[in-house]
């Protein structure tokens, strides 16, 4: 069984984050879960971890539509950073736009796309738990 010591949820929707945390807690493989309200906050957090030589999160759930720095901008900026290959990112969004879903595959750091709404069994299947 895969274990995730540190999990990031990058999403501005507080209700979704509460629900998602519940689901993750039911799966029981996620120890520490951190909520970051948008891409900019997530990016500066990751940069700080890199500078301080701290461990990176084992998994990042990234929403697309967010204020300040949205999911796409986050991925674009990440491209320029040296630790881009040390991250495991899952894009999680309620978008049904096929072009957006396809676009996710262009980013090497994105492992998969998760469609909102989601549930325990679907998550387990995608994450291979």
């Amino acid at each position: 069984m895969n274990k995730f010591d540190l999990t990031y949820i990058v999403d501005d929707d507080a209700i979704f984050v509460s629900i998602f945390k519940k689901i993750l807690s039911k799966i029981q493989n996620f120890s520490e879960i951190k909520h970051l309200k948008n891409g900019a906050i997530a990016l500066s957090d990751l940069k700080k971890r890199f500078d301080n030589k701290q461990v990176f999160p084992d998994i990042i759930f990234l929403d697309l539509n967010m204020p300040v720095l949205d999911g796409w901008q986050f991925l674009e900026e990440l491209k320029q950073l040296p630790f881009k290959n040390q991250l495991a990112i899952y894009v999680i969004s309620s978008t049904i736009d096929k072009r957006e879903i396809k676009k996710c595959r262009k980013y090497k750091t994105v492992l998969n796309f998760i469609q909102k709404p989601t549930n325990e069994s679907q998550l387990k299947a995608i994450l291979g738990i």
Binding site: I15, F16, F20, S94, K116, P117
Partner: peptide
């Protein structure tokens, strides 16, 4: 998108 993000939340809550 805006309606979906809300209804998708509701769907997940109901399942839970």
């Amino acid at each position: 998108h805006n309606i979906r993000s809300n209804t998708s939340n509701m769907a997940m809550i109901i399942e839970l």
